[in-house]
């Protein structure tokens, strides 16, 4: 019952939040991310909370009067024999496997590797071109480390010894302005990691490992995180177009070619879809930086109205 209801509660919540974002034209990624957290977290607690308020909520009378009774669909027998619930279970199983393969295992693997492995890096000299280019960035700068690699690589590590890793290929590729933009973006990630809300939400998200909609919503929240860091980077550099150019250079022709390539195998199809989804996301970030629209955010009134609507409607979804 928990599984079915949390699935439908999340679906209803996602529809309401998408509607709120469209209706009020909310474009501030910080606000949209908060709404997405609401969608991810609410269904974890909704069923037990509702049952606490009204233990008779699953009763035959309540179901008869409910807005939506999941039992009706789950026990609907296709061709008179096969319950729809079997397909629902299959979707949950498939989602659980995707979660394990795409999220949990890579995260654990990465955590183990970073404890075990060594990254060969070189510290930048104080008079290096990179250090000079970053001199005008305000605030405390993290340690800058260079990897010997011709590929364009940049990433950051967070925690007590936060650092930004750049590849030598990237140092040769980017101009001073673009270097500033790229590093400012990583500095934003480091700053954001000091209040690790996304990580906490990820821990809660693990509880709903079976729910495909959580997969989608968490991905959208992660994309919002990138846009939040883009905004923070622009506030440090004052140059949104430099960051847009940097994204173009880093991700090649991303966004200009959004065809899904022919896939010979299912794993190729998965990779192709993954690249397609990634390129759409990069393109939206580039467009956003180039158009520089004013961030419209919903206030706490909108947030509260959305939450109240979600609570009330989902109470009648059993």
């Amino acid at each position: 019952m928990y599984v079915a209801q949390s699935f439908f509660h999340l679906l209803v919540s996602a529809i309401i939040i998408d509607g709120v974002i469209r209706v009020w034209k909310i474009s501030d990624p910080l606000t949209t991310q908060r709404f997405r957290f609401m969608v991810i977290l609410f269904p974890i607690f909704s069923f037990p909370l509702y049952q606490l308020v009204n233990p008779q909520r699953g009763s035959i009378f309540f179901r008869q009067e409910a807005l939506f009774d999941s039992n009706r669909w789950l026990h609907l027998a296709l061709w008179g024999k096969v319950p729809v619930g079997i397909f629902f279970l299959f979707i949950l199983f498939f989602t659980s496997m995707i979660f394990l393969a795409q999220e949990l295992v890579p995260v654990l693997h990465h955590a183990l590797e970073s404890r075990r492995g060594r990254i060969d890096y070189v510290r930048l000299r104080d008079n290096s071109a990179v250090v000079r280019a970053l001199a005008c960035l305000p605030g405390e700068k993290p340690e800058m480390l260079v990897l010997d690699d011709d590929e364009n690589i940049i990433f950051s590590t967070t925690g007590r010894k936060a650092a930004v890793y750049l590849s030598s290929g990237l140092v040769r590729t980017l101009s001073a302005e673009q270097m500033q933009a790229a590093v400012a973006h990583e500095m934003a990630h480091i700053e954001r990691s000091r209040r690790p809300i996304l990580f906490v939400v990820f821990l809660f998200r693990i509880i709903m490992f079976f729910n495909p909609l959580v997969l989608l919503e968490f991905r959208r929240a992660t994309q919002d995180e990138e846009k939040i860091c883009d905004d923070m980077a622009v506030s440090l550099t004052g140059r949104p177009h430099a960051l847009a150019e940097t994204l173009r250079k880093l991700y090649g022709a991303a966004g200009e070619d959004d065809r899904i390539t022919e896939a010979a195998r299912i794993s190729d199809l998965r990779d192709s879809l993954e690249k397609y989804s990634h390129s759409i996301h990069i393109r939206s970030r580039i467009e956003r930086l180039e158009e520089s629209p004013a961030n419209e955010g919903g206030g706490w009134v909108t947030f509260s109205l959305a939450l109240l609507t979600i609570i009330v409607i989902n109470y009648f979804v059993v």
Partner: peptide
């Protein structure tokens, strides 16, 4: 949304 939920509830 409420109308859609009621309709979906009625279909089975």
């Amino acid at each position: 949304l409420i109308g859609a939920l009621k309709l979906l509830n009625w279909i089975p």
